[in-house]
Structure formats: C-alpha cells, structure tokens
Write a protein that binds this DNA or RNA. Structure first.
Length: 824
DNA sequence: AGCACGCCGACT
DNA sequence: GTCGGCGTGCTC
C-alpha cells in the first residue's frame, strides 16, 4: 500500500505536523513528494502537500483515511522545495504549510468548495416539493456536475433550512472539492492539416456547403494555427462550420493554454556580452569557476555604484546557462524597473521569466509555469522569486543584497538572502550577493576570516567603469543655515546648484528621506535628539501619554519642553512631505518642471514607468521623491543629486538606523554623473558629524563600517548578537502581561538550566509594542538577544510549546520574528 | 482553523 | 420531548 505523508493547510501550531493517508490505486502514479492533494481532515476536505512517501512499516495503517484527489498533473513543488520549506519552518518558526504557501503562486491557493447532489433513493413529499420545488429542480438538473452549495444558498435564500435538514437526513449528499483560485486560461485553437490533405478534403465537400469551402480556402492561404473565434470571424462564419470540418478530419481543434505575457508587446533590443574591464574579469573568474565545478560557494561582490556589477551577473548567468543550468536573480521590488528587466530580456530574450508584485495573479501564474515547464531558464524577480520552481539551479544572484525588502514582514518572516543560500546548498548552486553597501552581517562574515560554506568570499570592485569618477559630495549643516536666518527647505548651496542645472538644461534628483518623521523629537537649534540611557536608541514619542519611550527596554520619560542640551525652545516633532517640497520648488524656481514620485503618484499601474520615461526624455528638470528615486536609476543628464533631510531616518528607534542612512545616501549619490557629465551631490543635514553622513563624503564604506561594527559589538547587536522578537496580542492587557512574563521567565529558566550567562542569552520585556494597539488588540513584545550560533529559535519554540495549554486557553496570539529587520 | 460532540435553555 | 445555542477537543 502506498502511504502519503501530508502537511494539511491549517496554519496553526496544533496541526503543524505530518498526517498520513493511504493512496488509492487510481492516484498512485500521480502522488509524489511535492504533490498538492485534497485530503479529508476533521470532517472536511482540505488542501495538503505531500512531504514524504513512507513505507507501510513506519505507519499504523488502521486509522488511515484516503487521499481524495491529486490537484495538479505535475507537482507544483519539488523535493528540493519541500526540504527548503521544512528548513524555513525551523529557521523562522512558522507552520510548514505557511512556508509552502509562500512558494506557491497565489493562483494555486486551494479553496474548499462544497457541492450538493440528491441521493439516489431520496423521496420528497408533495408538501416539500411545493415549498422548495425550484431548489430541488435545480439540484436534479445539475446532478451530473453537482451544484455548488454556496451558489445554491445565495440563489434559494428561503430554502436554506430545507437544504440543511435534508443534508443532515442524508437525502442530499454533500461532497467537498479543493479548487484552484485561478485556472489556466485556454483558448480553443484550430490546427489545419497539411496542404495536400486540405486540397483533397476540399474536393469531398458537398457543393451546398459553401461556408466550409470558404474556410478551407482561407486556411490554405494562412496555414498556421489560429484561434477558433478568430478564424470564424475571418471567414465570416460560425464555430459550428469549423467543427464540421474537424469531423471531416481536415483540422483539429484543441484547447491551448494562453500565456498572459506582460511583456508581449514590447521589443527588447538584443544585447551581447560587453567586453569586461580587467577588474570585472577578475571578479567574474572565481564565480564562473564555482559554477563550473558545481561548487556551492557564496560570493560577496562589493562594487561601488557604476562599477558594472550587472554585467558580471549577466555573464555569470550565461555561464550557468551554457552548462544547462538555471539562474535566479533577485532584485529589490523597488528596483524592479523596466530598465532593469530590459537588461535581462535583451541578453536572454524569451528565456527570462519576470516575477514581481505589479503582475496580476494570472500573469504571475503564467510566468511561474514558464519556469516549471522549462520554457524559461532565468527568473528575475523580487523576494519570492527565490522559490522559482527550477530543477537544476546553477546560480542565484541577489542584487542590492543589503535591501530591507528581502525580509518578508508577514509570516513566513523569511529573509530571501538566507533562503537563497540554503537553496543553493540543496541544489549545488553558487550565490552572488552584490552591493555597493553590503549589509554589516554579510560584510562582517566575509571579512571575519571564519571558514565555512555560508561564509561569503569577498570580491571587490572599487572603481567605476571607464574611469568615471565618483561624484563629489558636499555636506551642508542646516543648523548653520538656520543661524544665518535661512528657514527655507533648501540651503544656499543646493539652491545655487539647482539654479545652475536649470540654466544648463541638466537634470537633478532630489531625495526626501521621509521615513521616521514625526516619531522623534529633535532640537532645531542644536540637532539634539532624546536617547535612551540604556540602549543608545532614540526614544519614541507617544502621543497619548506624552511620554518618550524606548521600545527595547521599556524605559520612559516625559517629553521635554526645552532642549535638554541647549535649552532652546525650538525642540519639536518633525513633519514634512514631498508635496510641501514640490510647492516650495515651484515658489523658489518659477517655471521649474518637477516630477514627484511617492506612494501617492505611483500607486496606479504603470505610473512608475511613465514618470521615469518622462524624466529620461528630459521633459522635467527635477525628479523628486522618497526612497524610490534612490535605487538603480541611470539617467545620463543627471548631474546633481540633492538630499533634503539626510538624518531623518537616523533618529528612528532602530539600531540599524545609521546603516540604513549610509546605504541610502550612498545609493542616491550614485545616481549622479554616471555618464559623460560629471556629477555632484549635496546633502543637507542637522548632524554633519554623524559617521553615516560624514562617511558618504569620501564614499568611505570601510570607515563607516568600522565604526558601526564597533558600536554593534559593544551593544551585542547583529552581526555579533542576534535577535528574536515576539509579539503577544490580546484584548486585555493583564492577560497579555501575564503571558509575556510567563514566556520571559520560562526562557530565562531554560537559559539558566543550560548554564547560559545573560551575555549569551537575554530576554528583554515584555514591554508595549511600538504599535501598542492594533485592531482592538493590545500588543506587548519580548526581545530575545543572544550570542552567535546558539540554537535560540529551537529554545524559543520549546518554551512556547511548553506553555501551550495555558496560552491557548487565554486566547493570546503569539507572533515570532527571527532576525527582525524593522524594529518598528 | 473549523467541525463534531456535548451539555444546557426556548420552542412545537 | 426536540431544536439549536456556543464551549472544548481533535484532526491521519
């Protein structure tokens, strides 16, 4: 007997384990590891994923139910992806089914539908026929196909009670089926036979069948396959005429799956490999030989903006393809611009599948199938493209490796960089992590001197291609501007530079670093911000209580009326937006043409592309925006980059604030002077001494990193220590506190038991979450801080499991974030 | 998660 | 005496 070990699609801790089912003979050939099946479970039918096919000796056979259906002809997951899902579940403490769901396109999310039919021997009285005759009639009519319960209930609202009773009595039978949310779109297509057959067949067509003859004549002119509807229209007839020709054997009508190719109507100029600079060639060499040797190595490709990293990716991919292997390229969502896609489509044409969030569910599903069916060998996409259903991956590239968008903020809260490295381990692929500003985690690992399969090999590209210089960076101290009576948004330097570009017809990118506004308090006179004395983190202002609070340790103080450092009364919350800047630009520079890009102006599909095209064609002088103008854009006439509030995000209560700021400033500075015209960068700040701002001036990643790593090591933050954030939520605060405390003391007890010092594992909290109430539920969080390689995830999971009973009864929900990226 | 089974109040 | 309210417990 064949047994299938199945993970059912119920995302809860209780059901997060395999259940065994017998496989009926009729399905035996279809069930594989990775198959999506329908199984009976606690009185209903659910979708599940087959994770193993154990022998009968391992299983107690008596209690088994049978798999009721196999949902796909080809399993949507491979053994490799099943293993990867199991690893994700352990690594990020999420239910297995949640990990699997993340790997499947939304179109394959199963939905259980109930169908109703009349039992063979059911008898209904005249009275019942009178009351619910229409319902019974509908049921009998649809008996072959069975009627959808949900449809019946809406159509026959008055007869709901009858339906329910008859189902209970067994006079109606309910059956459940798992259906896809979306199916493959098929088009009926006519395939004509060869010319000889058509010619011979035409002679046999009776004289009065004029239309059929016309169709054949049309097909003789156009012998390629054509959609049924199209042919009918072209020949001025209907489908029935064409069907009679099918009966004569002159053509064939088949359903053909139609791909919704979002790039179908676009031409991509063909590009061939560019000659590499010596530096690029040196960088490519070890990557190419790792691919050659099926050596699963990780590389950190650290190259300044404009150093030609993309060309190295392209040629490494070429290498993988030439060996018959596939490649995945991950790009931050925000950088997945048409410009980027074009580079890959131009080089690899139809072999590229593109996956990103702007595609419809259907389009995404089509791209996904293109990969699984082997019609594409290169997948370019955001985070989730790391799950592209390839079978023989040679290379995974992660561009802008440091980007936060690689971390998913909903469960499964995975980081695509870590998933990529694990997937490469399973498939024997090489990994290239590319960035001008690598994350401190990656950089520290690469230079640590540690050895190991996950430790990146460091490759550096310190120069731009074609000897183009990095742009000069000027830092403007806005406190000085204020002292001199300039209360405008633009410093004199920036205003002058802008005026100069307007006169020369060159272009400017203006970045408003808006993230973090209004949550922190800053003195406009001296730039002082209020910090937590225990955590070296900005305090968060809470409107309700008027408190300043640290959400790491819970420390609180009252909000200051004057600046604690300089006694100035000009201490206040910050707040401004792109719109305000736009108005100010129009006011200061009459006639200036500004494109504003923020969430408001780019929410519409295709608007992003539209604005960028407009800017590229120089129909605007200034591109003003938030983070989205900082990444990956490449415009020849941009010679000035201005940053309006460099330190805005610096005060966020997040230990990565400085790292983020440095990365953002370096990225946006890299937009200037990428071609013949030299570039200039002007950064406005209230905190010019801060290393994350100051280091941008010399493009000095090493200097910034050295200082920042020192701070991290002192405080035990990543990469030296690691974090797990737990959020508990409930309608009532006391309940929350007691559960939170129970967790904290439970984990501390466990640590003591294992002889761990508090420097090795510590639990902070519970304290109110940064969002203290959400959807009528209060939220508290605990932060677990631990050293290095400790298997803390498993410890946390163990403690949560141990307090299971009490917590379940209390109704407190727990959400775990391993390696949180956003502290807000 | 969500369905069955169970034990208590409002009806034919 | 039955229908159905929603509180626990289990799901191959």
């Amino acid at each position: 007997m064949t047994i299938a070990r199945v993970i059912v699609d119920v995302p809860s801790r209780e059901t997060d384990r395999p259940f065994d089912y017998s496989v009926p003979d009729s399905l035996r050939d279809w069930v594989e590891v990775g198959s999506r099946v329908a199984v009976p479970f606690a009185g209903r039918t659910l979708q599940g994923i087959v994770v193993a096919l154990p022998g009968d000796a391992e299983v107690e056979l008596s209690r088994l139910k049978a798999v009721s259906d196999v949902l796909d002809a080809v399993p949507p997951l491979s053994e490799e992806l099943v293993k990867l899902g199991e690893w994700m579940s352990r690594r990020w403490l999420c239910p297995l089914t949640v990990a699997f769901q993340a790997m499947l396109p939304a179109a394959l999310k199963g939905r259980t539908e109930k169908y109703v039919s009349v039992a063979d021997d059911a008898v209904f009285s005249d009275e019942e026929l009178a009351e619910a005759g229409a319902l019974l009639h509908a049921l009998r009519k649809d008996s072959a196909t069975q009627a959808k319960l949900s449809a019946l209930l809406t159509k026959f609202q008055g007869s709901g009670a009858h339906l329910k009773r008859w189902l209970k009595q067994g006079r109606l039978i309910e059956r459940q089926k798992v259906e896809n949310r979306l199916s493959v779109k098929t088009v009926l297509t006519v395939f004509p036979r060869d010319a000889d057959t058509l010619g011979a067949g035409k002679a046999d067509i009776p004289a009065r069948a004029r239309k059929q003859r016309e169709v054949i004549e049309w097909l003789e002119e156009h012998p390629e396959p054509i959609a049924l509807q199209e042919l009918a229209e072209a020949a001025g007839t209907t489908a029935s005429t064409i069907r009679s020709l099918e009966e004569r054997g002159l053509l064939e009508i088949r359903g053909v799956t139609e791909d919704r190719d979002p790039y179908a109507d676009r031409d991509f100029p063909v590009s061939s490999p560019l000659p590499l600079t010596p530096a690029q060639a040196t960088a490519l060499e070890p990557i190419a030989s790792a691919i050659d040797a099926k050596d699963r190595k990780v590389f950190l490709l650290h190259g300044v903006t404009g150093s030609g990293k993309t060309e190295i990716y392209l040629q490494a991919i070429q290498q993988a393809l030439s060996l018959g292997r596939e490649a995945i390229v991950l790009v931050p969502e925000i950088a997945l611009t048409p410009q980027m896609v074009e580079r890959f489509k131009s080089r690899f044409g139809a072999r590229v599948a593109v996956l990103h969030s702007r595609l419809s569910q259907g389009e995404r599903f089509d791209e996904w199938r293109k990969i699984r069916e082997g019609r594409a060998q290169v997948a370019v996409g955001a985070r989730s493209a790391v799950f592209a259903p390839f079978s023989n991956i040679g290379l995974i590239v992660i561009d802008e490796e440091h980007e936060t968008s690689y971390k998913q903020e909903e469960s499964p809260k995975y980081h695509a960089r870590d998933v990529a490295i694990e997937r490469a381990r399973l498939s024997g692929a090489a990994v290239v992590l590319g960035s001008a500003t690598p994350s401190l985690e990656t950089y520290e690992a690469a230079l640590s001197g540690r050895a190991g399969p996950d430790i990146p090999h460091y490759i550096s590209l310190p120069e731009r291609v074609a000897d183009r210089p990095l742009p000069g960076v000027t830092i403007v101290d806005m406190r000085e501007e204020l002292k001199l009576g300039n209360r405008a948004m633009f410093s004199r330097e920036l205003a002058d530079a802008l005026r100069d570009r307007l006169a020369k017809g060159e272009q400017t990118v203006l970045l408003l670093n808006r993230r973090g506004y209004a949550t922190f308090v800053m003195c406009r006179s001296c730039g002082h911000t209020v910090q937590c004395p225990h955590c070296d983190i900005s305090l968060t202002h809470h409107k309700g209580s008027g408190n300043m609070r640290c959400h790491y340790c819970g420390y609180a103080e009252t909000e200051p009326k004057t600046c604690p450092a300089c006694q100035s009364p000009h201490i206040r919350f910050f707040g401004t937006g792109t719109q305000k800047v736009e108005e100010s630009l129009a006011h200061t520079f009459p006639g200036i043409r500004v494109i504003r890009m923020d969430v408001d102006t780019t929410s519409e599909k295709g608007s992003h592309e539209k604005w960028l095209t407009e800017f590229r064609e120089r129909r605007a002088d200034v591109l003003l925006g938030t983070q989205m103008v900082a990444k990956g854009l490449d415009f020849p006439y941009v010679t000035l980059v201005g940053v309006l509030a460099a330190d805005a995000a610096l005060r966020l209560p997040d230990f990565r604030a400085a790292e983020r700021t440095f990365q953002l400033l370096t990225q946006v500075a890299g937009r200037a002077g990428r071609h013949e015209l030299p570039g200039e960068v002007i950064i406005q700040t209230y905190d010019p001494e801060h290393s994350s701002v100051a280091s941008v001036q010399g493009h000095d990643y090493a200097k910034f990193t050295e200082q920042e790593l020192f701070i991290r090591s002192q405080l035990g933050y990543p990469p030296y220590g690691r974090l797990i954030a737990l959020t508990f939520s409930h309608e009532s605060v006391p309940m929350l506190l007691s559960v939170g405390q129970r967790f904290a003391s439970g984990l501390k007890a466990k640590a003591a038991e294992l002889g761990l010092a508090s420097t090795e594992l510590d639990v902070l909290g519970p304290v109110p979450s940064p969002i203290p109430r959400l959807k009528d539920r209060y939220r508290f969080q605990c932060m677990v801080k631990y050293r290095g390689e400790l298997a803390a995830s498993a410890l946390v999971a163990g403690v949560l499991q141990g307090m299971g009973e009490a917590v379940k009864k209390s109704g407190v929900l727990t959400s775990v974030d391993v390696d949180p990226q956003m502290m807000l």
